[in-house]
């Protein structure tokens, strides 16, 4: 009788050590993203708390004058001008990007022949990969002069130009996320409508867009969150004059614009101006955090089950 082979034999011990060590190492790497989040929140909280020891919270959220980089008594920390500037740019970007992005998504998902799609998709990817500094340059050298030839009273630094270019920047994001949502609508639902004699437009508007609505809306929210956090375009093109206004032709400053301006100036780590960067950063973080959660909620909560 043949001696049965032993299945109890130990493997080399170094191999067991490797097998035991690797998941631990990988877990530590994975936890880094948790630490990053914790780091961001703690960093912002700590200095923001210091900021609110000096500046009353109510003054911060209701004040309409922001002169954080002035000295002494002239310093005023009313954040509303920065928020109005940010919202002005974001709303303007939405006006540009939502119809164009959605239109492109519909075209690519429903109308475009496969060959055209294969040409346009990479172009949109390139557009999405262009650094914001390039868009900023585009805004002041091309878009602003172009707009000023129509609107002579337009300031050189203005919210309008910045918001148009921020809108252009987020078009690929809306187009590609919405297209994904629309393409995941199953074919048989479309075919049912075509079978009843619907035109393509009717299928798009009555079947595909409603079915993909959660994905489409969440792409809007994500893109606008991106617009809120956008920095270089607004820093270059919108100016650095915090003004509580909703007039798109005026020079304004966004939350991100202030942070850049402050970081580039000569301020000491202990000063109130320095702490103001964190307070504004916290405000910005909260805005984008809420919008990202909202986008996730929309796409999960209203997900169509096919």
């Amino acid at each position: 009788m043949e001696q049965p082979r032993n299945m109890l034999q130990k493997k080399q011990s170094w191999r067991n050590t490797v097998e035991a060590f690797i998941p631990k190492f990988l877990l530590i790497c994975a936890l880094l993203s948790v630490f990053t989040t914790v780091g961001i929140i703690l960093t912002l909280l700590f200095e923001t708390a210091g900021f609110f020891e000096k500046v009353p919270f109510l003054d911060y959220i209701t004040g309409t004058t922001w002169t954080a980089l002035f000295s002494g008594d002239q310093q005023k920390f009313g954040v509303l001008p920065l928020i109005s500037g940010t919202l002005l740019v974001t709303v303007g970007a939405a006006v540009v990007a939502v119809p164009i992005g959605l239109g492109s998504a519909i075209y690519l998902s429903e109308y475009a022949p496969e060959r055209v799609r294969q040409i346009i998709k990479p172009i949109l990817e390139i557009l999405a990969g262009i650094p914001t500094i390039v868009y900023g340059f585009f805004a002041i050298t091309l878009v602003t002069p172009f707009l000023r030839s129509f609107i002579p009273q337009l300031n050189f630094f203005n919210a309008l130009s910045a918001s148009i270019v921020v809108g252009i920047m987020i078009i690929p994001m809306i187009a590609s996320l919405s297209e994904d949502a629309m393409r995941s609508v199953p074919k048989n639902i479309r075919e049912a409508a075509y079978g009843l004699g619907a035109t393509k437009l009717e299928v798009v508007l009555k079947i595909v867009v409603p079915a993909a609505l959660s994905g489409i809306v969440s792409s809007f929210v994500l893109a606008l969150s991106r617009a809120i956090g956008e920095t270089m375009i607004v820093t270059i093109a919108a100016g650095s004059n915090p003004t509580f206004t909703f007039d798109p032709t005026s020079t304004i400053q966004t939350m991100t614009g202030f942070m850049v301006q402050a970081a580039m100036g000569d301020i000491t780590y202990e000063s109130l101006s320095y702490k103001a960067i964190y307070a504004v950063g916290m405000t910005l973080f909260l805005f984008t955090f809420v919008m990202n959660m909202l986008a996730q909620y929309i796409s999960r909560r209203f997900k169509e089950e096919y």
């Binding site: 049965p4 082979r5 299945m7 109890l8």
Partner: peptide
Amino acid sequence: NIHNQNIYSDQVHVEMLRKN
């Protein structure tokens, strides 16, 4: 039991089992 070894016993190395 494979060749009189209970393959679900704690002492069996599943890698060695699968080699067999």
